[in-house]
């Protein structure tokens, strides 16, 4: 894989970022993970994260090892990346009601506190964050972005894997990527079709 750019999988927590990391791994891409966060009921196949990334601008040392690899970066932390490098961002988009339901379920399983906000208010805050991130990404040419709809990925894994592969240079095994998608893990599905 080319060292010319860093592949980033981003989006809101519980929007399918771990699934996309699994797809990339299955397709042959090397991942930047430290394996510290163990799989659990919410993510039985693992989170595929790197702890240093979560510290934002306070610790950017991991960037030195990230060329040619894929790394998971939560949406808000994209704003803290230096703009003097090239990034290709696979940005996961998922229905906000599903995202919030999944986040609340995960926090409940872990016995942790969720935000004392109604779903509607939380959705409004997330929507604002996403708008700001999209705007910022559009303003910075060092970031190329492919927005991937989580619903489409589940419904059409092969076609979506092809799109991702093409975006990242076409050197991955798209068929293998598609096999990583397991619709049974899609538990917080809305009853209406996801747009």
């Amino acid at each position: 894989m080319s060292d010319d750019f860093i592949t980033i999988v981003s989006g809101l927590p519980r929007s399918g970022t771990s699934l996309t990391m699994q797809m990339l791994q299955a397709g042959g891409m090397q991942l930047l993970t430290d394996g510290l966060r163990a799989p659990d009921e919410s993510n039985p196949r693992g989170y595929l994260e790197h702890e240093a990334v979560k510290h934002g601008r306070k610790d950017l040392s991991w960037l030195e090892q990230a060329g040619g690899k894929a790394v998971k970066v939560i949406h808000l932390l994209l704003l803290q990346l230096p703009t003097d490098r090239n990034y290709r961002v696979v940005f996961m988009v998922r229905n906000l009601e599903e995202v919030i339901a999944s986040q609340r379920a995960m926090l409940k399983q872990q016995g942790r506190a969720d935000a004392k906000l109604t779903d509607a208010k939380l959705a409004a805050v997330f929507e604002t964050q996403l708008t700001q991130v999209r705007k910022w990404l559009a303003e910075h040419p060092s970031f190329q972005v492919l927005y991937v709809n989580h619903g489409n990925l589940i419904e059409n894994p092969l076609a979506t894997a092809g799109q991702i592969n093409q975006f990242l240079g076409g050197n991955l095994l798209a068929d293998n990527m598609a096999t990583a998608v397991n619709p049974e893990l899609y538990r917080q599905r809305k009853s209406v079709p996801v747009k």
Binding site: P13, K54, L76, Q103, M106, A115, L122, V125, F126
Partner: peptide, 11 residues
Amino acid sequence: AIEQLVELGYI
């Protein structure tokens, strides 16, 4: 909302 993302372990 950010506090929730911290609790989720993503930040």
